[in-house]
Structures are given as C-alpha cells and as structure tokens.
Computed example of a mutant assay.
Amino acid sequence: MKLSAPIFQLKRRAKLMARNSNVPLHEALDQIAREEGFARWSLLSSQIAAGSLSKTILSRLNDGDLLLVAGRPGHGKTSLGLQLLLDAAQDERKAVLFTLELTEQQARKHFQSLDEGSHGVADNLEIVTSDEISADYIIRYLSGARPGTVAVIDYLQILDQQRSKPALSDQVVALGEFARKTGVVLGFISQIDRSFDPDSKRLPDIRDIRLPNLVDLGLFTKACFLHNGEAQLHDVV
C-alpha cells in the first residue's frame, strides 16, 4: 500500500497533532496510521521497513550466507523474512520457511498479504511447521538443494527450546557449515533484547540480539536490523 506521504512526514504530522490536540504521541501515530489504512502505527512502520529493504536484499546476499533479521515485535522482521522468500520464489529459486512460531495457515495468510499483484507466487512456497525443526532436520530437508536456494528459520531463539535438541550454538555451527558447503542461503528471524533503547540509538545492532543461550554471532555473515520504519543491512564483521 502506497502512503500519502513519506514516513518522516507522517511522523512530523503525528507530532504536530499530539502537540495541538494534547494527546500522547503514540495515539497520534496510531491515528495517522488508520488514515493510511493500517490498524496501528507499528503495522505501518513494519510494512514500510520490510518493503523498502526487500527491493534490494536478495541481490545483496551471496550463496552460502547466514543472515540475521532482527527487531522488536511489530517492527517488520517477520514480514522482511517472508518477503525475502517471495522474492526468491519470483527469481525461480527454491524457497522454504521453517517455522516453530506460525501455523501453516497463519504463514500462508501472511504470505498472501505480501504477495498482492505477484500472480500467486506465495502458493508455491514451501512451509514446514514440524516441532522437530532443528539444524539436523533442516539439513536433511534441504539435502540436494541447489546453490542459491533460500530458507528462512522462524525463529533463532527457539531452535533449541526442546531439551532433546542440540545446543543453539552447535546448531548454528552445523547450519553455517551446511550453507558454505552447499551455497544455500539461510535467514534467521531473531528477537532483540528488551534492553535496547531507541532513545539512545536509532536502530538495534548485533549487541542487542537476545541470547538466552550462548551463540557466536560472528558465525553469521550478514545482519539486518529494523525499527520504527527503518531497516539496515550490513556485513557482520
């Protein structure tokens, strides 16, 4: 959905409304979002963040990359991960979502909402919702996949939630080796720690990834951070 004005102008309009009407800023932002066709500001900003970066993200990934897509709830990380799969499918690549968070019905609905005008590409995406999803499961499922295949894992922090599964750090190592060997691109949707303070910096960074269990984040090759309608992709150094 095209906005009536750039997002920075909409923010400025909301601040003016809050000042003139003596209402909290978050209420003014939600009012502006409703005028633009969104239920609340977080939905507007998340879609804009995902949409702006999704136009280039696939072309900026190399075969074998391990990508982090991270943000707070409602700021677009899931939308961006799903959009990446849609773009891969449109590029005639194999595209697979491994999700421990969504049902297949929820994922299909989300894909379809992003796929407007794309001639039903979402219907061809593979969605895996098994409780057994882990590094070993993903590696077996993608065995034989061609270089450039794109898979997104939803989400990083619950890969080892079941105690029967290997430690998260071991799984990331295994998936990294698999990606490098096969040329498959693996994206991990990730949570941001609650300590992230948007008043002190505009976007979260690698130090803000929530890690209930120790993981060497240097194993990832690229990271994308989203917040409040902005998104930034960079190499992990």
Score class of each variant (00 low, 15 high):
172 V>R: 03
95 A>N: 05
233 L>C: 06
89 A>T: 05
51 G>R: 10
167 A>E: 14
14 A>I: 06
97 L>T: 05
13 R>V: 10
163 R>W: 08
229 G>L: 07
60 R>M: 13
55 K>D: 05
186 L>N: 02
152 V>F: 00
37 G>R: 10
185 V>P: 06
159 L>V: 08
60 R>A: 05
126 E>A: 09
55 K>N: 06
194 R>L: 13
154 D>V: 00
117 G>H: 08
229 G>H: 00
76 G>P: 06
21 S>Y: 12
182 T>R: 06
61 L>H: 09
219 L>E: 12
236 V>S: 09
178 F>K: 05
215 V>M: 01
178 F>M: 12
130 S>T: 00
14 A>S: 02
192 I>Q: 01
61 L>C: 08
68 L>Y: 02
197 D>W: 07
192 I>G: 03
212 P>W: 04
178 F>S: 06
89 A>S: 14
190 S>W: 07
7 I>Y: 08
206 I>P: 13
27 E>C: 07
184 V>F: 00
120 G>F: 00
110 H>I: 04
224 C>Y: 12
151 A>E: 00
220 F>G: 03
167 A>L: 08
79 S>H: 11
24 P>E: 09
164 S>Q: 14
163 R>T: 12
6 P>L: 07
90 Q>I: 04
25 L>I: 15
187 G>V: 06
154 D>Q: 02
32 I>Q: 12
64 G>M: 06
50 A>R: 00
80 L>N: 02
1 M>V: 12
11 K>V: 01
52 S>C: 09
178 F>L: 06
96 V>K: 01
180 R>Q: 13
43 L>P: 04
6 P>D: 14
47 Q>S: 15
128 V>Q: 11
160 D>V: 04
197 D>K: 11
200 S>D: 14
77 K>P: 01
101 E>T: 10
162 Q>A: 13
235 D>N: 15
59 S>D: 15
72 R>N: 06
104 E>D: 14
